[in-house]
Amino acid sequence: MNALYDIIGVPFGYLMRLIYSLCNNYAVAIILFTVVTRILLFPVNYKTQKGAARMQLLNPKLEKLRKSFANNPQRLQEEQQKLYQQEGVNPMGSCLPAFIQMFLLFGVIDVIYKPITHILNISKNVIESAVDIAKGITGDKNLTMSNLRCELMTMENLRDNGEKYASLGENFLSKVSEFGEKFTLFGANLGKTPTFSPESGWTKEAIILVMIPFLAGLSQLLVSVYGQIHQKKTNPVTQPGGGCMTVMIYVLPLLSIWFAFQVPAGIGFYWIWSSVFSFIITFALNCYFTPERVKVINEQEKEKARIYAEKHPNKKTFMQKMLEQQAALEEQQKGSSSSGKSSGVSRSEQNKANRDKLKEARRRMAEKYGDSYEDDNDEED
């Protein structure tokens, strides 16, 4: 897992270092970092909401299919997939943004856990020496380079034992000390993990740190509730599983709060602004995708899909592959079903079926080697 953090964290580390060099404040750098990443993700968000808007046009047709095949779930699925193919809509299009968000989160976590590496750009050898010093002072056997929190723990130890790190090269002591003063939000160290049991009591720093997870959950709730309101406004027809979606609207913010209490406050601070900017972008795109504009876009996309299919007749679309897989699965199920039913036939019928299979095999062998084959119809049970 640490290797994954390292790989994804490198490009984000370069970006964060550049932003920090411009603003020279860690909290401001996180906000600007969020803005930049949201701008980079805007084409994906645009495509996702365009697909969602087009899906809303299909809802009347989908609802009609649900009523027509209410007692035949398998046929309903087939007809839905055919409709998606005809309209050129990918119902799985929303999975990509979710994957990218997860990918982005890994990078953010690594950058916040390792500010000495990514922002101060200090070499690995010097950091290893600093971690060894911190380990010797604290006696913590878990304080090693494999520990994701090792740099934050070393920075914390350096505050009280700065002289122990004076011999390290690359101006380690001065760089980390200066950065530690700017690694804050209103005086609260963003490298610390929020807790309801602060060691120094309920200081200003402890209160700010505890507020961050709740603000992260509240901002997530804002995005979720707005999404549900917009969904009901544009598609008042109740969809299957709506109750589960309502529950998730409130469960996800609670999970965000819980998780923000397990990681450094800087990550929760990032989530707050990520949700805020996500809300702004979603609201703006929803205003842009009016029903009239979506109808025009839908016709344009259908025409593009038709032209592409004509130019690439042998290239299968996502929905075509889904339909073929569904057909193959049905054939397999039919085969299993027929073999299961065969166990219920009489002995004579089973023997006849076996003889027919044997005759067919003999006939094919004879054809293969150019021999003649005469069917023996006088075999008895």
Results as ranks from 00 to 15, higher is better:
195 T>V: 00
182 K>W: 01
193 T>C: 03
195 T>M: 05
166 A>T: 09
169 G>T: 13
197 S>Y: 04
172 F>L: 07
175 K>Y: 14
188 A>D: 05
169 G>C: 08
169 G>K: 15
169 G>Y: 07
193 T>L: 02
219 S>M: 14
196 F>L: 07
173 L>Q: 15
200 S>G: 13
164 K>C: 03
178 E>G: 13
198 P>R: 12
228 Q>E: 10
229 I>T: 08
168 L>I: 12
210 V>S: 14
179 F>E: 02
163 E>Y: 14
190 L>W: 06
206 A>P: 07
169 G>Q: 12
204 K>P: 06
229 I>Y: 04
191 G>W: 00
168 L>R: 15
219 S>T: 15
184 T>E: 01
191 G>E: 04
171 N>D: 12
212 I>G: 00
167 S>E: 11
215 L>P: 07
200 S>Y: 14
165 Y>F: 13
205 E>P: 07
168 L>H: 14
177 S>P: 07
186 F>M: 07
228 Q>D: 06
191 G>M: 04
165 Y>K: 09
205 E>L: 01
189 N>A: 09
209 L>K: 01
176 V>D: 08
227 G>M: 02
217 G>F: 01
164 K>Y: 08
220 Q>V: 12
207 I>M: 02
171 N>G: 09
224 S>P: 06
188 A>V: 03
184 T>Q: 02
213 P>V: 00
208 I>C: 02
205 E>K: 04
186 F>I: 00
180 G>F: 14
224 S>Y: 01
178 E>Q: 15
176 V>G: 08
186 F>A: 00
163 E>Q: 12
163 E>V: 11
212 I>H: 03
213 P>C: 04
167 S>K: 11
167 S>H: 15
201 G>K: 13
173 L>Y: 11
184 T>N: 00
180 G>R: 13
163 E>F: 14
221 L>C: 10
166 A>G: 08
198 P>G: 13
170 E>C: 07
172 F>Q: 03
212 I>C: 02
210 V>D: 14
171 N>S: 11
192 K>E: 13
168 L>V: 15
180 G>K: 15
181 E>L: 10
224 S>N: 08
200 S>N: 15
227 G>Q: 10
186 F>L: 00
225 V>S: 05
208 I>D: 01
175 K>G: 10
212 I>K: 01
195 T>P: 04
196 F>G: 03
190 L>C: 09
189 N>C: 08
215 L>Q: 14
201 G>E: 09
191 G>T: 05
193 T>M: 03
189 N>V: 04
204 K>H: 10
211 M>Y: 10
173 L>N: 12
164 K>W: 03
173 L>H: 09
199 E>Y: 02
178 E>M: 07
199 E>P: 09
195 T>D: 05
163 E>S: 15
191 G>K: 06
175 K>T: 15
177 S>M: 13
200 S>M: 12
214 F>G: 02
198 P>Y: 08
203 T>V: 08
178 E>A: 13
179 F>K: 00
218 L>H: 07
210 V>K: 11
221 L>M: 12
187 G>C: 02
218 L>S: 05
198 P>E: 09
186 F>R: 10
200 S>V: 14
219 S>V: 14
205 E>S: 06
170 E>L: 06
164 K>T: 04
187 G>W: 10
163 E>G: 11
168 L>S: 12
